[in-house]
Amino acid sequence: MSEAIRPTSGRRSFLKAGIGTMAAIAAAAGVLEPLRNSKLGTSLSAFLQQHYKRLSPEDLDVIMKRLETEIAVRYGARVNIKDYKPIEGVEFGYALNLTRCNGSRRCVYACMKENNQSHDPGIQYIKVLELPSGSLNVEKSDHYYEHEEVPQDGKFYMPVQCQQCKNPPCTKVCPVEATWTESDGITVIDYNWCIGCRYCMAACPYEARRFNFSEPEIPKEEINPEMGYLSNRIRPRGVVEKCHFCLHRTRQGKNPACMEVCPTGARVFGNMLDPDSEISFILRNKRVYILKEDAGTIPRFFYYFDK
């Protein structure tokens, strides 16, 4: 870290100038990428597979069975893939108390485990930003902090993950409609439909989306065998993934993994349409704010400070 050299502004501006054309090339390369010697989801049937929304329940069953077999072959693990549907009358919301959060990153690793995120290359859906107290300038944050102890004096910590926007820019830019928002407010991705162009990553103001550069590496004993088709099943190489509020848990009424392990109790999750829920209590009684309000994304993820 210490020997690292500050990026020069020259390099930065050079990169900016080239962005237009190069993004196009990058996108083209991305389109081809998943077809090259990837292992999961490369069978001919996977290639010919329809979009999630056009699949009959029977088709989907066949596909999920096939995926289970592929994972068994590739990872040596017996897994159970299901398709969890949104619950009627439920719109999820998540609130995070920034006065409590101490930056321990327990949520980050529980999320990795729960959601079968690749260990190598490392993919993490939650980024914990360290910010100087009294500032809310996300650009000034550091999410690579390393300390003997947290929290540090004069700092506060802000975990950022997919904000599950009501007006999500990411779904609009997808050229193939591989990502969309469901009735409970969760924006999902059809990993078998995604072409890996990464437009959605560029569109997301929260940098919440991740890209699988290579076949995910997960030790067999670390694999969470309870998988959702639109959520934590092991993703093929070359697709985009992100936080989905643990829909395979939350659509069964459970709490998301990050909330379960939070040592400080900073996280509160629930149904915003239920006036008696904890999340409704917070929206009523706390001064919540949303990240990058001016982006007009209308997140379902709320932050607040307690006295």
């Binding site: 101490n102 990153r105 999410h143 690579y144 102890e149 947290v150």
Partner: peptide
């Protein structure tokens, strides 16, 4: 008072 904790490692650079 809530005790300080050892944070888990940072993400990959």
């Amino acid at each position: 008072a809530f005790k300080p904790m050892i944070p888990d490692p940072p993400p990959p650079y």
